[in-house]
């Protein structure tokens, strides 16, 4: 069974935000508008975070693209009172939108802030609404529940179905999330962390590899390759 993981090479990322946009189109996250976005209400399953270090004239901006870290020891799941969020056998953390009661405990517990809340009924401008992803798995979420990055779980299902239809075994390279597929600088790698021959496995063991807030013991499955 694969253990899906991602590696992001910060040397190659130039913060073009195409991952953020591809994610939105693939997963139907609503448009919050400039007003609500300024109030911290935007839903961005993938976000490029600018960390500004130092002060003028010695300023360094570290840009970190941040999907869900898909922790192997996820704090969000420990605290959910109704089992609305769970980890699949392949290590992907999902939310059951029909079960979630909207208490936001998981969002408070997640040290990476990857969880987003539907403050209102999701909305799109008419032009965008006509182009929503029709996949039933990414149907717009109802008001009042939590949603988050799923590593494009719908793409995994489609890849499996496709392999079956073509009468060949499914392999880990058949499936990538939208952010990985679209990445302009080829900075993102995706695959099975448990397969010693996979690129992600090898990169995750590179001396440049690190994970966010590793000291918290969350054991994320998203690795970063240090810049410079």
């Amino acid at each position: 069974m694969p253990r899906w993981g991602m590696v992001i090479d910060l040397d190659k990322c130039f913060a073009c935000q195409s991952c953020t946009v591809a994610c939105r189109m693939e997963n139907n996250t609503p448009v919050a508008g400039p007003d609500q976005t300024a109030r911290g209400r935007a839903i961005l399953w993938n976000e490029v975070l600018p960390f500004i270090e130092g002060e003028y004239p010695k300023v360094h901006v570290q840009l970190i693209p941040r999907p869900c870290q898909m922790c192997d020891n996820p704090p969000c799941i420990h605290v959910c009172p109704v089992k609305a969020t769970y980890k699949t056998d392949e290590g992907i953390i999902l939310v059951d939108y029909k079960r979630c009661i909207g208490c936001r405990f998981c969002a408070v517990a997640c040290p990476y802030q990857v969880r987003y809340f539907n403050w209102y009924v999701p909305e799109w401008p008419a032009a965008l609404k006509a182009h929503l992803n029709p996949d039933p798995e990414v149907q717009p979420r109802p008001r009042g529940v939590i949603e988050k990055c799923t590593f494009c779980i719908q793409r995994l299902r489609k890849a499996r179905e496709k392999a079956e239809a073509e009468g060949r075994p499914f392999t880990a390279t058949d499936y990538v999330p939208a952010c990985v597929q679209t990445c302009t600088g080829h900075a993102r790698y995706f695959g099975d962390l448990d397969d010693p021959n996979s690129l992600v496995h090898q990169l995750a063991h590179s001396p440049r590899a690190f994970r966010l807030l590793e000291e918290m013991g969350t054991q994320p499955k998203v690795y970063y390759l240090k810049q410079g």
Partner: peptide, 11 residues
């Protein structure tokens, strides 16, 4: 209308 009427936000 939803919890948007509060001042709550991420994070």
């Amino acid at each position: 209308t939803g919890l948007g009427v509060t001042g709550l936000k991420r994070p």
